[in-house]
Design a protein around this nucleic acid. Structure first.
Lengths: 369, 369
DNA sequence: CTGAAAGCGCTTACAG
DNA sequence: CTGAAAGCGCTTACAG
């Protein structure tokens, strides 16, 4: 014998154990207990004997062995940047959708935490060591070059990808349209002096929201005022800094009547900054966000925002990725290289942070609190 | 040959491939590439040859095979109820800590979503099929009897367990003390008519917070008024219902001067309900929460609350669970059955939702909005 | 210092 | 309808 059992602790029952107990082969047990296809080949009596033995021994298939034999882990990975100052509600909602999707298909979900997409590229490649069948990237900001490094034996999907990568399932929402609709809504209730605090302009999502903002202004016949477009990033911290800086630079001058924020985190930060100066939302200034994350409903007033169906998007990414893995497993020849994108519609979530324009308040001086 | 390769697609390199390329055995390759302990036995030259071959072939160890041989998946599971009306910030923060902890120990994290602890007990048992080495239960509410069903070949940890289970790593925070401190703080700024909207009394956490509330009243010489203890559950929805019901039942009678809510979700709901009746926080009534979740910082005013170090707790649960798994793997005889608890301290997060008592406002009638 | 062998628990052709 | 065999890719004793 080549090996001694390392400890006498309760070893889980194997197919061989079940077979022995039922007086049949391990293979027959496998067919009955784990093989959906082949199980019909087994006679009813053998079948019941095997079932009984399995129940008695509390048989549970060993996933590692099964994965090794099948070359299939039945596990999908999720990679996301979850560190950084702000807790990531985007992550939470998308993850929920992904977990739901995986559960529906009897797949496991393994979560990988990243600090930085570019710096952690090698790490991502490292995850593709057979432990997952496919990997979903949440809001990746990677270049086409690093995308090319992704190994071919693992399949990928991306939610809100920054670059559209061929051979990857891309799941997006129509952000340009969402931003457009929101700004048109602001105009429709009477706003003309509309500020936008955006995400980092290098990000596809930030750019699309800016594009929608600009197109809506244009279609409304409102000239674009560069003073009113402020670049931030998608974090609350930065939203706060951007809002404070703008106010500090415009004391005594007219406030915008509405602020369209690049996402909910910025909007929440913005409301706080305004509150500190005694500016009330929506009485003095209307504020709106983008995402419809949990934050949108946990502020007072609740946030008018653009809803992206993040859960659904996560869930759909799972469906599409599994479909592709399935294809690859059963395919006899090359798969088509391009996969294309799925684009979800956005919709306005009208709540309490937007009202008709106020009294044209000027920016009050900062106060100590 | 017993099997044909199913497709010609890029097969990942194996140890045998590396060995062949380097002109050595697979075993030697294993020692160099994967075996921390045994790698010293290999001569430097063979070593470099193997490393070169591995790099050239982009060798990556196959986790399934390794897991099968080692009987160790290097994966920890996290089970939590993530559905239900409210998105779960508790889950997000604890999960972040767990992922961080696992990353530190080079372990994977697999997330299992549950609907209901009792109904999904069989599911939980099902997860223990070799795919994980240990499972962390987030805020489980299970009975001692169902806990006894948990299999012995998988190890468990529980964050905020509802019953303290022997043979399980329990990680808790000192909720009674946190509640006590908060109520004493309210008293110290002048409050004496302090209401508590609690979680479900069956929950250990809810009970402990109530205990702390009662003890603080007693130590402050304030008689307990049963009218001021309202049972809710830990959801925003229920918090809203409880607060509205209380106000409706007390129109024209004195408001409490402070409301200590069982968690932040209740506090946020409470602030909204008060706002609808034109009652201002903290001018008319002080409101405080428990948890210091994201919600605490996104309300206006920001919430005074009790901070639990959820991330740290998650991270520590990982440390302790892995320690135990390690012990079990190397142990020659039985482990001690009892594991005990780790209790984290709580601390007050003083923000803007608490002030000195107002003018003794009465409950105004409900208004339509 | 290095290799041949056996085994982890499963599955899939192939014979009967 | 059922079983014996080989293989998935790795690791750990055991010989040399």
């Amino acid at each position: 014998m080549a090996r001694q059992p390392r400890k006498k602790s309760v070893r889980a029952a194997t197919l061989a154990d079940v077979g022995r107990a039922a007086g049949v082969s391990a293979m027959a047990a496998s067919a009955v207990l784990n093989g959906a296809r082949t199980s019909s080949r087994i006679s009813p009596e053998t079948r019941t004997k095997i079932m009984a033995a399995a129940a008695k021994l509390k048989y549970r298939p060993n996933v590692a062995a099964r994965a090794l034999a099948n070359r299939r882990m039945n596990t999908l990975g999720v990679a996301a940047v979850v560190y950084g100052g702000d807790l990531n509600l985007y992550f939470l909602e998308a993850l929920n959708g992904i977990i739901e999707g995986c559960a529906r298909h009897n797949q496991n979900t393994t979560v990988f935490a990243l600090h930085d997409w570019t710096l952690d590229m090698a790490k991502i490649v490292g995850f593709c060591d057979g432990r997952i069948d496919g990997l979903i990237l949440l809001g990746p900001t990677i270049t086409k070059e690093s995308a090319a490094m992704l190994p071919e034996h693992t399949f990928f999907a991306a939610l809100h990808p920054n670059v559209l990568m061929p051979n990857i399932v891309n799941v997006e929402s129509d952000e340009e349209h969402g931003a457009y609709d929101m700004v048109r809504h602001l105009v429709s209730v009477g706003h003309r002096r509309i500020m936008h605090i955006s995400g980092k302009q290098g990000l596809l999502g930030a750019k699309r929201r800016i594009d929608g903002y600009l197109r809506a202004l244009k279609d409304s016949g409102i000239p674009f005022d560069t003073e009113l477009l402020v670049e931030g990033d998608f974090s609350a911290t930065n939203g706060q800094i951007a809002a404070e800086a703008w106010l500090a630079g415009h004391e005594g001058r007219p406030l915008p009547t509405a602020i369209f924020c690049g996402n909910d985190a910025i909007a929440v930060a913005c409301i706080e900054v305004l509150a500190k100066r005694g500016i009330r939302v929506p009485t003095d200034v209307s504020v709106c966000g983008f995402d419809d994350s949990l934050a949108a409903r946990s502020t007072v007033p609740q946030l008018t925002t653009v809803r992206q169906p993040l859960r659904q998007m996560g869930s759909r990414a799972v469906d599409l990725l599994l479909e592709r893995i399935q294809q690859a497993h059963s395919a006899t020849h090359e798969l088509p290289k391009s996969v294309g994108s799925v684009v979800f519609a956005t919709e306005l979530a009208l709540r309490d942070s937007v009202a008709t324009p106020g009294t044209g308040k000027l920016v009050p001086p900062a106060t100590k609190r």
